[in-house]
Amino acid sequence: MKKIFGFCLLLLLNHVNAQDTSAANELQQKAQRWVAGLKIDDKAKAEKVQQAIVAHLTAVRDWHNSHPFTQVPAGLNPATGNRLSDLDRQLIVCSSKPSTIHTSLMDVLNAGLNKEQVAFILDQYTIGKVAFTLKGYEAIVPDLTEKERAEIRKNLEQAREQAIDYKSMKEISAIFEIYKTKCEQYLNNNGRNWRQLFKNYVDKVKAEKEKKKDGAL
C-alpha cells in the first residue's frame, strides 16, 4: 500500500511540475513574441526587456492564482449599492498586490524604450484596447473635438497601464470600464449627452442593418 501511495504521489508531483514548466514556457514565449515586435538591434537591451516582462507576467499570474476572490467578503459596493460581484471581489484582491510588481516592469520599459515602444508593449498586454475603444468613441461621437479626443485617449492610456497588472481578459476589460465611465462623465460635463449619443448610434446601426437586409431580399 505504501509503495502504491508513493508511486501515485510521484505521478502527481510530476504532473504538477510539468504544468508549471508548461506555464513558464508559455509566458517566456509570449514575452519573446512581444519583444520581437519591437525589432530592437541591441540584444542585451532586448533580453533585459524580455526578462522584465516575464517576471511581471509571472508575478501577476502567481498573485492571481494564490488570491481567489473568496478572500474578499461578499459585501456591498458603496459606490452603487449593489452587492459585489465575483469579478468585483477578484479585482479588489488582485489590486492589493505589491506596487513593486508594476513599477519594476515600468522602470525597465521606460529606461530602455521610447514612448512608442512602451505603448506597443502595453498594447500587447491589453490586445490593443486603447485604439479599439477610441475608435468606438469616434463612431458614437462623429464630431468629437481634438480636446475631447485627447482627454479620452489620456483616460484610456491610464486604463491600459493599470490593466497590465491583471491576469484575465475579464479583469482587464473591467479596468477599462472604470475609465470608460470617466470618459462618458467628461463628455456629459462638457455639454454632451452621452446617453442620447449612444442611443443615436445604436439606432443608426440598426437602421443600416435593416437596409442591408432589405437590399438582400
Rank of each mutant, 00 (worst) to 15 (best):
V60P: 04
V16L: 13
P98V: 11
A119H: 14
L197M: 09
K170G: 10
A139M: 02
L27Y: 03
P73L: 14
S85H: 00
L156E: 13
Y166F: 12
F5R: 08
N193I: 11
Y179T: 10
N188M: 02
G136K: 14
K30Y: 12
E184D: 11
I101L: 12
A18V: 13
P142Y: 00
Y179H: 09
E26S: 08
E157A: 05
L109W: 11
S66V: 14
A52M: 11
G215F: 13
A59F: 10
K170C: 10
I53F: 06
W63Q: 02
K180H: 05
Q51W: 03
L105M: 03
Y179L: 11
R89Y: 00
A119G: 12
T145Q: 00
A74L: 04
N193Q: 11
V54G: 07
G112W: 15
K129Q: 10
Y166Q: 05
N17M: 03
R195Q: 11
K135T: 10
T70A: 07
T58D: 12
A46L: 05
Q51V: 07
P73C: 12
K204M: 09
A24R: 03
Q117R: 10
S99A: 15
V54P: 05
S168H: 08
Q71I: 11
K2A: 07
S168V: 08
L76R: 13
L122R: 15
A18C: 05
H67S: 07
I140P: 01
Q29L: 14
A52L: 10
E146W: 00
V16S: 08
K167N: 14
Q19Y: 15
I92W: 12
N17W: 03
V202I: 14
D143R: 00
L38K: 02
N155M: 08
Y125K: 09
D62G: 01
I92V: 12
S22G: 04
G136L: 13
K206E: 15
N77G: 05
L217S: 06
S173I: 05
R89N: 01
A131P: 01
I4W: 07
Q19S: 12
L27I: 12
A59Q: 11
Y125Q: 13
A216E: 10
E47P: 01
I127T: 15
P98C: 03
T70P: 06
E184F: 05
R33Q: 13
C8I: 15
A24H: 01
A163S: 07
H15K: 15
L187P: 10
L156C: 13
G112N: 13
N193T: 09
K135Y: 04
A24N: 02
S85W: 00
E146R: 00
K43T: 12
D123S: 13
M1E: 10
K180I: 06
N190E: 04
R160H: 11
N14I: 15
D41I: 00
G75H: 09
I127P: 07
G81L: 05
R83N: 14
M169G: 06
A174G: 06
A44F: 02
I178S: 01
P68Y: 00
R192Y: 08
D42V: 06
N110S: 05
C8S: 10
Q71W: 06
